[in-house]
Design a protein around this nucleic acid. Structure first.
Length: 477
DNA sequence: CTTGCCGGGCG
DNA sequence: CGCCCGGCAAG
């Protein structure tokens, strides 16, 4: 415990912690961290850059469940924080078990990071798994202070590892209480949520051209939400499903993508589930963002951007599915669509041209907007949208095909009561949106009106509207 | 052409 | 408002 020891570990912490400075959210694993980080000192000295990305990768996974783990963190801190000098093995087991319990209860971490699970059994795949952990005792205090002071700095620089000598370690920092740590964790989480660089460091490798293009694309989306999610520009996946963060689809994608070395995509995905979480709350529950393949004769609709990218890349662009290299070209072949599940299920509100099923001014999915029956190529690739919306329209349109009381011309009283009720019901649904279209004339109804029914000679039997040459009120469409 | 009805004028 | 009608558009 001499100063040299601390100094050495500080440098280690600096090296590892450049990216992991914010990782100390989980102070509960402090003892484990101590040994592993010390072990990593030798390794990281040999390959400091190499460990950089895995660290972030792990971090992304961890923070995803960090919100749920605030509580568990408290408990684990109590377990470990008060006895930092306890036997290492003892603690290693304890914390591991505790972690399993913690994450197991939420189930999120388990699902989110399959690579995380192997590390649970004590194996160290590549020795990288434990890089998210920090030092106990003084070290954690130091890094706490370090975090506080360098939070901004880290965000700006973590992509390019700083020399450890450049990392100012605060001195004379008093040990902070557990409450401080929690507050710090929350603060870090909050600040991270606005920091694109931390969560997507490898975005620097994407091509600027495609990024700029994506900015344009994602503009409407981000402006419709918080407007501060600046990494939308580089992160084209916007699976803002209100449903649980990880759908089956995403799990599938993860597994598939893990065949290759597409860490990028995985980071992208998991990052979104983590940081996009507040977005669905801002949206209606009924809104769901889907990604539709724009390739000709392909109506593939997936719930994740990575999924649709993979689809485009492998199916249409003929890219090797093993390679996850993406030049951004796939982005041209799919578009984000926002689906109002309520209106689709009800099948009624999609009639209005100003239907809220559209995400913005440019209609990304004209099918939702028009009464036009689906084109031929739509029919052989059934999707949720192409199935429900147009068929709904057809149903409503044919529903009111009212055959007028042709045979009742001579009667004194037309069967108004009967037809009136049924017709009116449809009328309330159909004509209300049609009225909102200015300048378009209401299509002539198929029903025969008073004029036709009674004839000019019995004009006094007409309804008032007919007499006034207004829309017939008796035989409405 | 017939028919439905919108838009507008008049009292 | 109630009432009427010119005129357009669909069929």
């Amino acid at each position: 415990m001499d100063s040299r020891y601390i100094m050495d570990k500080s440098s280690v912490e600096a090296r590892v912690g450049i990216a992991g400075a914010d990782f100390n959210l989980r102070t509960g694993r402090s003892v484990l961290r101590d040994t592993r980080v010390s072990t990593m000192a030798e390794k990281s000295a040999a390959m400091p850059v190499y460990i950089h990305r895995p660290v972030l990768y792990k971090f992304v996974m961890d923070v995803e469940s960090a919100a749920e783990e605030v509580k568990s963190e408290r408990s684990s801190e109590k377990r470990n924080g008060h006895c930092p000098r306890a036997p290492i093995l003892d603690h290693t087991e304890k914390t591991d078990v505790g972690d399993q319990n913690d994450t197991g209860s939420t189930g999120i971490l388990k699902r989110a990071s399959p690579t995380h699970c192997p590390g649970m059994n004590g194996q160290l795949p590549g020795g990288l798994k434990h890089l998210d952990i920090s030092n106990p005792g003084k070290q954690s205090e130091l890094t706490n202070g370090f975090r506080a002071a360098q939070e901004q700095h880290v965000r700006l620089t973590e992509r390019q590892p700083l020399p450890s000598s450049h990392i100012p370690v605060p001195r004379n920092r008093k040990p902070s209480g557990h409450a401080d740590k929690e507050v710090m964790a929350a603060t870090v989480l909050t600040s991270l949520s606005t920091s694109p660089l931390v969560i997507y460091p490898s975005s620097a490798s994407t091509e600027p051209a495609s990024r700029a293009w994506k900015e344009v694309l994602s503009d409407s989306y981000s402006s419709s939400t918080s407007g501060n999610w600046s990494w939308d520009a580089s992160d084209q996946s916007v699976p803002s499903t209100p449903s649980p963060p990880l759908s089956n689809d995403n799990n599938k994608n993860f597994l598939i993508s893990s065949q290759g070395d597409d860490v990028n995509e995985d980071i992208t995905e998991s990052t979104h589930f983590m940081f996009e979480e507040p977005i669905p709350r801002k949206r209606k529950n009924s809104m769901k963002v889907m990604f539709k393949c724009l390739w000709k004769n392909c109506e593939k609709v997936l719930s994740t951007s990575s999924g649709i990218q993979r689809h485009v890349r492998t199916v249409h662009l003929g890219r090797n599915c093993d390679s996850d290299y993406s030049d951004g070209e796939e982005d041209f072949y799919y578009s984000e669509i926002e689906v109002n599940m309520d209106s689709l299920s009800e099948g009624l509100s999609s009639l209005t041209p100003t239907s809220p099923t559209t995400a913005g001014p440019p209609p990304v999915f004209p099918l939702l907007l028009t009464d036009v029956p689906p084109p031929e190529h739509m029919s052989h690739a059934p999707t949720l949208l192409s199935q429900s919306a147009p068929s709904t329209l057809c149903h409503i349109r044919t529903d009111h095909a009212y055959q007028g009381p042709v045979t009742h011309v001579g009667e004194k009283r037309p069967p108004a009561a009967n037809t009136h009720t049924t017709v009116h019901k449809n009328h309330a649904v159909v004509t209300a949106p049609a009225k909102s279209i200015p300048g378009t004339r209401k299509p002539r109804g198929e029903a025969k009106k008073c004029r036709k029914v009674y004839g000019m000679e019995k004009r006094d039997m007409w309804c008032t509207a007919c007499r006034w040459k207004k829309a017939c009120q008796r035989f409405t469409d």
